[in-house]
Design a protein around this nucleic acid. Structure first.
Length: 460
RNA sequence: GGCUCCAUCAUCUAAUGGUUAGGAUUUCAGAUUUUCAUUCUGGUCAUAGGGGUUCAAAUCCCCUUGGAGUCACCA
């Protein structure tokens, strides 16, 4: 069985990069009928972890990801870690170190001055004497002193680290007894039965340390997949300062979960020339060993395109539902089908769509200056009046085509082009020169409102 | 700085060692549209540089350059 996990630290929201690794882990687990676990990495006791976890679950829910089992909090697993620290102590694979922070700093300074790599000097590795007084010990693990550690990575291949370059007897429990990151990650992943660790490649350099822990405890290694970072336009790791990194921001900006996931899955992964992936297709096709080795730049232009694609192909019923979040209530609107059809192909986001809808539904308060100048000329007045009369004399106006027919008749009568009536009418109805088809707009707002808007412009 | 990773159009990416280096986004031009958008058609744009190996290199090797990540009693 494949077991994957997502293990964020509690930052209060779900990061867009986090969502990607979560998605990939989720896909791989689900594709194999396995489990996708959620664990909160809160060993440094920052408060409101619960709220942070809730924020992640909320974001998961929005995009449609679901974790299995209960959420594990590292802060509530302290006993487990202590047991495993003790185990290592008992077996002589870890030891107490009485070096103070000040001493450590001093050592590091010396080493740096000598242009050496700062590292612990193993002074308590085989210590048997009486410990110095008034000092709380940290627990260090006995790391190998020489040789190499090879990370067999499903994305990067075999990455070999020279022990002497990167390792020392690193701390697994602080002087206050709390365990450190690299220790708990290994313990948790092993104990939770995680078989495939899919995470950002910023963790690649931590992996040797975790492997040391796995080995010391006699745990079997999982498969590792270190997926490349998402970079911003400056080519740097994506961070809070890069604008929208909170997944829920995408909801308020009017993006659909389908578009977001589709966008993220294509960052560093592809399947031939295919661009559009439904969740079903992702589940069918995704394999972490197909992930690219290189970082990708986060560029929302494609996301916009994907979003408009999904919007265009969405049922009106669903649109109606999603639009409510953006303050547009259409459920009981009798012309909602015409409205949504008129608007769904011209919006990149639900926010844009909501704006478009309001522009149709709400009578314009004033008329755009440039639009007036360009679309409402001297001759326009008479044309609009003629059109208004024709409307009044028509009956049974319901569909856009009915209104279109009236426009055609007037245009024929006056022997003018469509533009002569379209432009001023557009100004009257929408207050500006762009927007949905006029026949649709009129069908939506009805004859009465159409006449009212025309009158408003004529009196302007 | 040490260690590690990475390098195909502006961006996301494709290409069993053999293709006119493909697709998508963006952009540009044209068509469609009463407008805007959509849609359709077409165009511009890439193998970082230098050495090898090979009949043949984007692809394999080495070097250079550039970029990124990481080096805590943070996670």
């Amino acid at each position: 069985m494949i077991v994957t996990r997502f293990a964020p630290s509690p930052t209060g929201y779900l990061h867009i990069g986090g969502l990607r690794t979560a998605l990939l882990s989720y896909l791989w687990a689900r594709r194999n009928g396995g489990k996708f676990l959620l664990r909160i990495e809160d060993t440094d006791f920052s408060r409101n972890d619960e709220a942070a976890a809730l924020a992640i679950v909320e974001a998961f829910k929005w995009v449609g990801l679901e974790h299995d089992g209960v959420i594990e909090y590292q802060s509530s697993r302290l006993e487990i870690y202590q047991q495993h620290v003790q185990k290592l102590l008992d077996s002589g694979k870890a030891y107490k170190c009485y070096m103070s922070k000040e001493e450590l700093d001093a050592l590091r300074e010396e080493q740096t001055a000598r242009k050496e790599r700062p590292r612990y000097d193993n002074r308590y590795r085989d210590f048997t004497g009486t410990p110095p007084e008034g000092c709380e010990a940290v627990i260090r693990i006995k790391a190998p002193l020489e040789g190499t550690i090879v990370v067999h990575d499903g994305v990067k291949g075999d990455v070999v680290f020279n022990v002497s370059d990167i390792l020392d007897d690193f701390i697994i429990a602080r002087s206050d007894g709390t365990p450190t990151y690299n220790f708990v990650v290994a313990v948790d992943d092993a104990l939770m039965g995680v078989t495939d660790v899919i995470r950002g490649d910023d963790h690649l350099s931590n992996t040797p340390k975790q492997i040391v822990v796995y080995r010391a405890l006699g745990f079997e290694l999982p498969r590792f997949f270190h997926v490349p970072m998402i970079h911003n336009h400056d080519g740097k790791k994506l961070s809070k300062r890069d604008g929208a990194t909170d997944v829920m921001m995408y909801k308020t900006m009017g993006y659909t979960p389908e578009a977001l996931l589709n966008f993220l899955v294509r960052l560093g992964w592809s399947h031939g020339d295919q661009e559009i992936f439904s969740m079903e297709e992702m589940l069918e096709l995704f394999d972490p060993s197909d992930i690219n080795r290189s970082a990708s730049v986060y560029n929302t232009e494609k996301l916009d395109w994907l979003n408009s694609h999904y919007l265009k192909n969405m049922s009106n019923e669903k649109l109606c539902e999603l639009l409510e979040f953006h303050g547009v209530m259409l459920v009981s609107h009798d012309k909602k089908e015409i409205l949504l059809d008129a608007v769904k192909e011209r919006a990149k986001t639900l926010v844009e769509m909501a704006t478009l809808i309001n522009e149709v539904l709400v009578r314009p308060l004033d008329f755009d200056e440039a639009a007036l100048k360009k679309g409402y000329k001297e001759e326009s007045k008479g044309i609009l009046e003629a059109f208004a009369t024709a409307l009044k004399n028509s009956s049974e106006l319901h569909l856009p085509s009915d209104y279109h027919h009236v426009m055609e008749t007037v245009v024929a009568q006056l022997e003018i082009g469509f533009g002569k009536i379209g432009q001023p009418l557009r100004v009257a109805l929408l207050g500006k020169l762009s927007g949905p088809g006029l026949d649709s707009v009129m069908a939506i707002i009805g004859v009465e409102e159409t006449l009212a808007r025309i009158n408003a412009l004529l009196k302007h």
